[in-house]
Write a protein that binds this DNA or RNA. Structure first.
Lengths: 211, 211
DNA sequence: GGACAGAGTCAACGTTCGCTCACCTCGTTC
DNA sequence: GAACGAGGTGAGCGAACGTTGACTCTGTCC
């Protein structure tokens, strides 16, 4: 990270402005001309640094995803607490990420069809770390009898999807329902529901049927 | 006389082709020229029927939303079965809607920033009916003691969000994990988890604390 | 001090965009 | 049968688009 700081930061500046504009207006809605003007250079200068619009967009996505070490953050909580704690860690991380980096949220909900590769990149870099962490935790806790017998992959994908959808559409909620709901309230409401649905009752034997 | 008047349907034809193209390439990615060519007319003809591109897009969204009577479908299941049945009805309806009308799914995930009004329309016409149905069901069952004390609005929004995210990103799943997961498997896995998290234990008294 | 490469500008290219205009062709109405 | 409005055409507008080529400036290396 510190090694990248050359004495000309133009490339980074362009990437920053492009990230902001792409996230605000989408891929098709952002002209190279706009990025150039925002970066204080001409359009031709942008083509000195990037091969074209598509490649610039791809670099923006990749740089944005690399800003966060999601898997690394989650690794610290590996094996800690009960399954409710695990869900809470994931949900809180997603929602705080969305709060810290609104551009990322917009890029995620923007890169739907325009530039399908960008969408795949975001999916792989942002969503997958959460899912993989959850799958691992749930699988281990299922073997230990803490979690009932469910499909860890489907369950993890859907839980992450629920939290992502919440982060992406929080703005829409307030527009229709009026009252703003903060992230912590959502977590406090939903994580226990999901956790309760996942955990074995104390009365039930951990291994009630074979694998 | 009345049998040959099918070509008075130009407006509807244009809407159909516009719907297909907008859902395939997004708002900015779809040129009026393309819609005209697909509809077998010139661009000028489109401007006879619609005020402009933005209004055409809005009409597409509105027509698409009106194709389905989500609230009406759900009303038939009002008050039936236990809370698990209610969740299953909602999840199955969302997933079958997505299966029957892929264009709608694409429009939903496409209309992100481009034309924000279109996004709000889809949100109101497609998502809200599910949420309102769930809120009503959960609230009633909470009062009856079947469901634990949770926030019905947040819970409903998040459940619907989970299912929508599943419907929207099912294509992405298979690309990364390889194995395709069909909708019914997802419902069978997740609805019981959520339902179990919502329902009161049999051992617990229905009203264990005041409202 | 000359060669060279990177970074930047300026001007323009060919194309496509949303949109409009003048005109045509009907079926209906008075 | 004249008038008329709805629906359609073909040509073309001005603007914006992504992209490129020729050129300049400025360090750095041999």
């Amino acid at each position: 990270m510190a090694a990248e700081v050359r004495h000309t930061n133009r490339r980074g500046e362009i990437l920053d402005h492009a990230s902001r504009l792409f996230s605000a207006h989408g891929y098709d809605g952002t002209a190279i001309r706009l990025i150039a003007r925002a970066s204080g250079v001409t359009e031709a200068a942008i083509y000195r640094h990037f091969d074209g619009k598509a490649q610039l967009y791809d670099e923006v996505i990749r740089a944005k995803a690399r800003e966060h070490d999601i898997a690394g953050d989650l690794a610290a909580s590996r094996g800690c607490g009960d399954v409710e704690d695990v869900l809470r860690v994931v949900a809180n991380h997603v929602l705080s990420l969305a709060h810290r980096d609104p551009e990322l949220v917009r890029l995620m909900s923007n890169s739907s069809l325009e530039n399908d590769q960008g969408r795949a990149t975001i999916f792989r870099e942002v969503r997958s770390p959460y899912i993989e962490f959850l799958v691992e935790e749930i699988t281990r806790r299922m073997a230990a009898g803490e979690v009932r017998r469910i499909d860890p992959v489907i369950t993890s994908r859907c839980f992450v999807g629920m939290v992502m959808d919440c982060a992406l559409n929080a703005g829409m909620w307030s527009r229709f329902a009026g009252a703003e709901v903060d992230a912590q309230t959502v977590v406090c409401n939903n994580v226990p529901i999901f956790a309760r649905g996942l955990t074995n009752d104390g009365a039930t034997a951990p291994f009630n049927d074979g694998v």
